[in-house]
């Protein structure tokens, strides 16, 4: 009974953690081995049947492909742009605070708001993109309605939203680099590009790793815009894993299959995080 106060202090946090994180996670894993229960047919153990049907589900494979495309299109681009912006606003330049703020603004907007904003760009005929295109005599195009352009549109919007957020991390890292390093390189005759390649970039690696992991998680987590823009369409051309899970769980009420998809998504994310850390850790210099 000696530690009763300690346990009392721990309880609120423990209840929240167990109730909203640990229990659901374990429950999801268990549910993925059972069939979806209804009033007439109670749930029963199904072994790996859910996983088997997942392997045969063409929509799952398409959604996974979409998600990989989405990740490949957004992660490197937003990281590169973030780094560039950070280096740019780290320099002495007029109205630096204003520029920094402008780059950061997309981050503070909710994704839903961003999606609404970009809807005005992508809308056929009356959207900004088509208006500008029309000035140069281009034909109207249904950017979000065309399976061949919809993913690219999503990616551009996501990069726009994400890059500013990652820029903040790079900016913080850049400011922790002592200015003498650049001066020492300058005296040795190193060009700005050489200095970036041989000094700045390697010293930013810890930040890059952190940003990379975050960007990867985001590319699987960020689906808010689908509710506004496409609802996964046309014909699942812009559907992403998490949105598909949402549809299966709450539109089709197939909770067992949704659990199975969730387990796969989590395994995927965990696997990627492990690979990123193992591969890059070796090449990262921590001070």
């Amino acid at each position: 009974m000696k530690n009763v106060y300690g346990w009392l202090l721990l309880t609120p946090a423990a209840i929240l953690l167990v109730g909203f994180t640990h229990y659901p996670a374990v429950a999801t894993l268990i549910d993925s081995f059972f069939t979806t229960g209804t009033v007439v047919r109670p749930s029963k153990f199904a072994g790996l049947a859910n996983y088997a049907s997942l392997a045969d589900d063409p929509i799952f494979w398409q959604v996974l492909r979409n998600n990989l495309y989405f990740a490949a299109a957004t992660i490197p681009t937003s990281i590169a742009i973030a780094m560039l912006m950070a280096i740019w606003v780290n320099d002495r330049l007029p109205a630096r605070a204003l520029v920094r703020m402008s780059y950061f603004t997309p981050t503070i907007l909710p994704m839903v708001a961003v999606a609404n904003l970009w809807l005005f760009f992508y809308t056929p005929q009356i959207g900004l993109l088509d208006k500008v295109g029309a000035m140069f005599g281009a034909a109207s195009h249904n950017w979000l309605g065309d399976p061949s352009t919809v993913m690219a549109c999503m990616a551009v919007m996501t990069v726009w939203k994400e890059a500013g957020f990652f820029m903040i991390f790079y900016l913080a890292a850049l400011q922790s680099l002592p200015p003498e390093l650049e001066e020492a390189a300058k005296v040795e005759g190193a060009s700005r590009w050489y200095y970036f390649r041989r000094v700045t970039f390697p010293l930013l690696m810890p930040t890059t790793l952190f940003v990379l992991v975050n960007a990867t998680i985001n590319s699987f987590k960020l689906v808010d815009h689908l509710f506004i823009l496409t609802k996964g369409g046309p014909d699942n051309a812009s559907n992403l894993l998490l949105y598909y899970i949402y549809q299966v769980a709450f539109s089709f009420f197939d909770t067992a299959y949704a659990s199975t998809l969730t387990v796969v998504l989590l395994a995927l994310l965990a696997g990627m995080a492990i690979i990123q850390f193992q591969l890059i850790e070796k090449r990262v210099h921590y001070r």
């Binding site: 002592p178 003498e180 001070r287």
Partner: peptide
């Protein structure tokens, strides 16, 4: 030669 040495840590 700089006061902080300005060595490249990596």
């Amino acid at each position: 030669v700089f006061q902080s040495y300005a060595l490249f840590p990596h």
